[in-house]
């Protein structure tokens, strides 16, 4: 047993997950990486150990397998100080419009699974009396848009869940962070047309997550301009908004 702080990253193989893990490891946290394929996470765990001389481990976690969540949490050798969910699925909007199975997977991957697992961790943290829960949501959840509302609505649900959880948990010494990254150059967005000034690299998001946990920020727009962009988008009257093609 060490007395070091520890962080658990759900969705550890994603670019943002790897970046967040590095930001915490750099500050001396021990790191757990969880994802569907634990073996595939081992090179990243080795990277963290070699770079920062900390403990890093991997475990299997499938966000769609909600029945496994109780066992997953109970099976952790140590309850972490910080848990971060970066799990999510962008999916294909056009396909989701008629393919209910695909739409369901998007909704479950972005709302049901992340909310349930973070809710479970928050309960454990509340019994302990401390801990931080971080959910990576999306600016897409701020208002449903024609081009990605299946994904956006799931993220909206996730943001609302985190908001309520934060209000309740803050009284018990547990902090909840909502992260809305905006455009990030990652595997998920590869091939998409991203607008340069609105786009950040994954390490910027990793550092922003770490800073938000340290400073107990509630809601983080990684690039400040997104707060403004989404404020304007949210304020547009529906009559105008529905005519916009984006």
């Amino acid at each position: 047993m060490t007395s070091r702080m520890s962080v658990l990253v759900l969705g550890g193989s994603s670019d943002i997950g790897r970046a967040a893990a590095r930001a915490f490891a750099k500050a001396g946290y021990d790191v757990g990486l969880a994802g569907r394929d634990a073996a595939a996470l081992e090179p990243d765990a080795a990277d963290l150990r070699a770079r920062y001389n900390i403990e890093a481990s991997t475990r299997t976690f499938d966000v769609l397998d909600t029945a496994s969540f109780d066992g997953f949490v109970a099976g952790l050798p140590v309850l972490p100080d910080v848990v971060i969910s970066i799990v999510g699925l962008l999916g294909v909007q056009q396909k989701a419009e008629s393919d209910l199975a695909h739409a369901t997977t998007i909704m479950r991957s972005n709302y049901e699974g992340p909310s349930l697992i973070l809710g479970l961790f928050a309960e454990k943290f509340l019994s302990r009396g401390n801990g931080t829960v971080v959910g990576v949501s999306s600016v897409a959840g701020d208002r449903g848009r024609a081009s990605n509302y299946v994904y956006g609505s799931a993220k909206a649900g996730f943001s609302a869940f985190l908001s309520g959880l934060r209000a309740r948990a803050s009284r018990g010494g547990v902090h909840v962070v909502t992260v809305k990254p905006g455009f990030v150059r990652t595997k998920m967005t590869e091939g998409m047309k991203l607008i340069g000034p609105l786009t950040v690299e994954a390490p910027v998001v990793g550092d922003a997550i770490f800073n938000a946990v340290e400073k107990k920020t509630d809601v983080v727009y990684v690039s400040g301009i997104w707060r403004l962009v989404m404020l304007i988008i949210k304020m547009l009257p529906e009559a105008v908004f529905k005519k916009l093609k984006f």
Binding site: P43, D44, A46, D47, A50, R51, N53
Partner: peptide, 13 residues
């Protein structure tokens, strides 16, 4: 961009 291993006694990476 991963580091595979590092030995601080020799500096070998």
């Amino acid at each position: 961009d991963r580091v595979r291993s590092f030995d601080p006694t020799t500096g070998r990476i």
